[in-house]
Write a protein that binds this DNA or RNA. Structure first.
Lengths: 142, 142
DNA sequence: CAGCATCCCCGCAGATACTG
DNA sequence: CAGTATCTGCGGGGATGCTG
């Protein structure tokens, strides 16, 4: 394989005490590499990264842009990505509160990879759809 | 945004009658584009695509190569990817049964995108780990 | 060997209410 | 506005058993 694929178990990820963030990580015993990859490829992680590649967003602005993401999941996703050093959180001490999210340099690199995948998917959707139709047609008469 | 992001609801995906594959799709009402993207970025989908990029694999061979994937999940993942036209399934009518899985041309394109992301992640793991340590250190004294 | 069927549990994610 | 805290369900996914 091209990339390492450690099947050896690794200790559960250490988390800041008092938080329950770890609960939301898919695997308790997984190599860090796979864990980060899952953050990047997570349902909302993908969309957040792509969106932030365009420009910084405020919280609710981002929520509206993505659409159909609950407040909780967006918060969780952003925290995870922030902890991984991919997203920068800028909380301004004003009333009402204003928090801007943007990509770090590291996050920009990651987001570009993710976007490339998303762009490919969008461009090839018609081919995928054709394949599906063919697949379903084949199953129907069987 | 760089890629379209349809927030409009779309009808549930049609599936071959008699199967319950659709149950395992994350979203019942989602645009096809996001659905395919989730197949590609799914936990096991990512690893399957990367592995098959090297060479064709038999079922159990693939299972061993990935490690820690249940038989059920691997079957599901492969079926989903096959339906999307990314994976080719070659079942030889011999006893004992032998089934080879390989990438289609379409799948190879997708897998390359996915692998690029995985490679990036692996290369940047140290930076991510540093960011995490800094994040956790910041939270500890707060 | 390569699956399919069934059972069942845990944890993700949504909904709701509350705070700075 | 931008979050936290708590409750709850339901479906993803593991385990087991059976078939061609």
């Amino acid at each position: 394989m091209a990339v390492s694929n450690p099947e050896t178990a690794v200790q559960p990820e250490l988390v800041a005490k008092g938080t329950k963030v770890a609960k939301y990580d898919t695997g308790e015993a997984m190599c860090p590499y796979r864990l980060v990859l899952e953050h990047l490829t997570s349902r909302w992680g993908v969309l957040v990264l792509i969106e932030l590649l365009e420009r910084p967003y405020r919280f609710s602005e981002l929520r509206r842009a993505i659409g159909r993401v609950s407040e909780k999941m967006l918060t969780q996703t952003l925290q995870t990505l922030e902890r991984d050093g991919l997203v920068h959180r800028d909380a301004k001490p004003v009333i009402p509160p204003r928090v801007d999210y943007s990509l770090t340099d590291l996050g920009r690199e990651a987001a570009q990879q993710v976007r490339a995948l998303a762009v490919w998917t969008e461009q090839r959707m018609d081919a995928v759809q054709q394949a599906r139709d063919a697949y379903d047609a084949g199953k129907r008469h069987s």
